[in-house]
């Protein structure tokens, strides 16, 4: 493929990133050579970023509060509130997070993307030996914008990652997480919830690469879509020959609430070690009519019964959030949204 003719959003992004270094320089180069990803890129099969960005013509601004100079090194026991906000136009930012050996850290990320925005943000996260990171990504205010939040997480031995992604989608919202998993008592938990309506698009893409023995990865992603919305889940576990005794489980379950929505899933396994337990499950369906009937028969109106069932279905991954107040806050957000939908 030769160099393609850039669209306005690409030109704006390339110009805005002139002189950038590190990940931003890579993004610039990739955009210059290949353009923004389209359906032709296997990893973006169901999320056509280039098409979604068609109306963007100028550069925008992305602001990150909570991380001075783009570097974060939280203290033991600290909870960092990170707020990312993209204004109209194309923009990109990158920051790095280091969780030092033995520390336990919570990172609460809140994302906002205005209408007409294309915000790219990349987090480079290092979890050192014996450290623990709990990461909550909340993408409930990007509903008219385009947001691509990617992260590369380096998980050392004895380290622990617990990630919960919560999203209401957007014009196109993508949470892309890559974990390099060293094994040897380290664990990765990559959960997620999405609830989409009104033509919104959410893409949760994760890839975990087990390089050392005895690592654990557990994943539970649940979603519900309605009214022209589209939910995408792509999960991949790659287990190297050296990563014997890996225990990896992936589950994606989604509800289709009406017939103008779409769910696409690609739960992928690439296994080179024989003494492992790797499994994935994927189920797509709709609300259980008998459960609805039962609830109505007990005097619960249909609308309420539906909302209750959907809420209990979706809330399961939120149980992995250890902060009770935050968990309850997100449940409430879910409840509000369900009320609005039905």
């Amino acid at each position: 493929m030769g160099v393609i003719k850039p669209i306005a959003a690409e030109t704006a992004l390339i110009d805005a990133l002139d002189g950038a270094t590190g990940w931003l320089a890579q993004l610039r180069e990739a955009t210059r050579v290949q353009g923004l990803p389209t359906r032709r890129h296997e990893m973006w099969k169901w999320s056509d970023l280039r098409r979604a960005a068609g109306e963007i013509t100028s550069a925008g601004q992305i602001t990150v509060t909570g991380a001075a100079d783009g570097v974060l090194e939280p203290a033991d026991g600290e909870t960092v509130e990170l707020s990312v906000s993209a204004s109209a136009g194309a923009s990109a930012a990158a920051l790095s997070v280091v969780v030092k050996s033995g520390r336990t850290v919570t990172l609460v990320e809140r994302y906002r993307a205005e209408a007409g925005s294309l915000g790219n943000i990349h987090l480079d996260i290092e979890i050192e030996d014996g450290a623990r990171l709990e990461r909550i990504c909340i993408q409930d205010e990007a509903e008219e914008g385009i947001l691509v939040a990617s992260s590369s997480i380096d998980l050392a031995v004895n380290a622990h990652l617990n990630q919960v992604a919560f999203s209401f989608g957007g014009k196109l919202v993508r949470n892309e997480t890559h974990v390099l998993h060293a094994g040897e008592h380290s664990e990765a938990h990559l959960h997620g919830v999405y609830l989409l309506d009104e033509g919104r698009h959410n893409d949760y893409t994760t890839s975990v690469h087990h390089t050392g023995p005895g690592g654990i990865t557990h994943q539970l992603v649940k979603g519900a879509v309605t009214a022209h919305a589209r939910g995408v889940f792509q999960g991949k576990f790659k287990v190297d020959r050296a990563a014997q005794l890996t225990d990896a489980k992936m589950t994606h379950r989604a509800l289709m609430l009406d017939d103008r929505a779409e769910i696409d899933a690609k739960p992928e396994l690439e296994i080179y070690a024989d003494n492992v337990q790797c499994a994935h499950g994927n189920a797509i369906g709709t609300l259980d009519e008998t459960a609805l009937f039962y609830m109505r028969q007990r005097g619960i109106p249909l609308v309420q019964a539906r909302a209750l069932l959907i809420e209990s279905y979706l809330a399961e991954p939120l149980d992995f959030i250890s902060d009770e107040a935050l968990r309850e806050q997100l449940r409430e957000r879910l409840r509000d949204r369900l009320r609005a939908i039905s």
């Binding site: 769910i263 690609k266 709709t286």
Partner: peptide, 15 residues
């Protein structure tokens, strides 16, 4: 596996 679903009146299971 690639799974694409465009109707709520379907049940798809993959293991």
């Amino acid at each position: 596996p690639y799974i694409e679903c465009k109707t709520p009146k379907a049940i798809l299971e993959h293991e």
